[in-house]
Amino acid sequence: MKPTGQAPATVSITSGKGGVGKTSLAVNLAFALADMHRKVLLVDGDLGLANVDVMLRLKPAKTIEDVLLQGQDPHCALTRISDHLAVLPGSSGVPAMVAPGSEKRSQLTDFLTCVMAGFDVVLLDTAAGIGDDVMWFNTFARHTVIVVSPEPTSLTDAYAVIKILAGQYGRNDFKLVLNFIENAEQGRALFQTLHQAAQRFLNLDPKLLGTVVRDPKVNQAVIAQTPFLHNTPGCPAAASVRQLARAVGALAADPAV
């Protein structure tokens, strides 16, 4: 285990559109990083309808809500999964958490800053959409990962998120993860299309961080409420995620970023 003196790398995972496999990807990526002996904190940033706990069949004793709305100790909200992995579960079905006001957001900053000390990588899985809470997590994180699938709706929404984060929040560093990709040609075309639009209209140069192949094992694992990385470690999607984890690990290792 590497020394944990420096601040953790914060990575938000967002997509605009829902149903592009964002949460499943975040969960498996967290396990892959933990397998690499990185200390990982996975934060469920969907404050209204949390899903990370469901993906992992967790019954969390405490959630982000207990800290922000009930005034509980921030550290008690962490659910330890293993030596290297902890989850900060969100609240499910709590409308009060959907649009946290400015005061709640400043509490959230203090809260996350407090609990993430000692971790190497903090993955922030955001809700779908472009709400204030989604934008908050994306601007809180140092790195923004945009998950995009080959569907035109996903592509357009991913572009819209990039445009808002660049235009209204001054972000200019985006990393793309292509999900549900059938073959190399499809992945290349998807990346080039999004890159071309971002370059031409927004003067941005989004980087390709990784590609995850379409794999029926992913959906089976979601239904089994187990990460496919452990459920079927030999499946193609697991290999994709392990490769992606090395790229994310490199972000955390580089002290310049």
Partner: peptide, 16 residues
């Protein structure tokens, strides 16, 4: 309202 995806941007995105 410039933050919406414009029709020129759509032309590029829909070229996929």
């Amino acid at each position: 309202p410039a933050t919406g995806v414009t029709s020129e941007e759509r032309d590029v995105l829909f070229s996929l």
